[in-house]
Amino acid sequence: MPKRHWPLYLSLALFLRLLLMIGLAPSRSHGAPSQTLMDAPRQRTQSPIVTGTSVIGLKYKDGVMLAADTLASYGSLARYKSVERIRPVGESTLLGASGEYSDFQAIMEMLEDQTQEDRNMDDGFKRAPAEVHSYLRAVMYNRRNKMNPLWNYLLIAGVNPRTGGFFLGSVDHIGTAYEDDILATGFGAHLALPILRRRWRADMEEGEARALLEDCMRVLFYRDCRALNRIQIAKATREGVLVSDPYTIETSWSLAAFAQPKAGADTDGSW
């Protein structure tokens, strides 16, 4: 066994380190089975992270109304319980969003830039909700074509400032866009739409419309595990747009099935 020569070992170590510093060292990943993050194929958003659940909307006698709860979930965790998912856009449009909350914030920034530009032009032109809807359709479809979607399902509601006509439309994260008298996103499409279909009328008074939306939000809170009983309702009328402060809806848990979910049944835990 050769005698150890410490100064030589030391200088060799320093030399290798020098090579490493100036980038001459042989690539460690070369031929190695494991890939670094930079070598891996580039991936875009494949699922949302912080999410809001359903938004529901309907037209009524004097305008259009939207409702949403104030929860932003982190996976199944009820992470942020006081976020506003319905926002005004300009003077006559409302935007409600389910899906990735940060993407909704980015969309709001785009729309606020546009609203500011409209204001700066000062030419008397008023943007209609249908234009906001069409714009968002173009944005969402463009982003999905870049394989980098904004992960939201949006409801756009408002009153056309030129004609006074009511507008309610939706856009999803791949740019599918349509209009209807009643709309619901996410779980709402399964749980709230049937209720809306049964009870909605075009000539509903504001109070009736509000009560219907609250009933829908209550059912969603009972059955959608990502929903909250703290909600906001917003309306767009010919007088303008108004988003309510968040408030808590009444719930009742006195039903026997709620109180004793497994009573009298040998189930696997579900009732």
Binding site: F125, A130, E131, H133, A138
Partner: peptide
């Protein structure tokens, strides 16, 4: 027309 679904305001194009 593609993006907004409506006709472009003349004064904005003139600008």
């Amino acid at each position: 027309k593609y993006v907004y679904g409506t006709q472009l305001q003349a004064n904005r194009l003139a600008t």
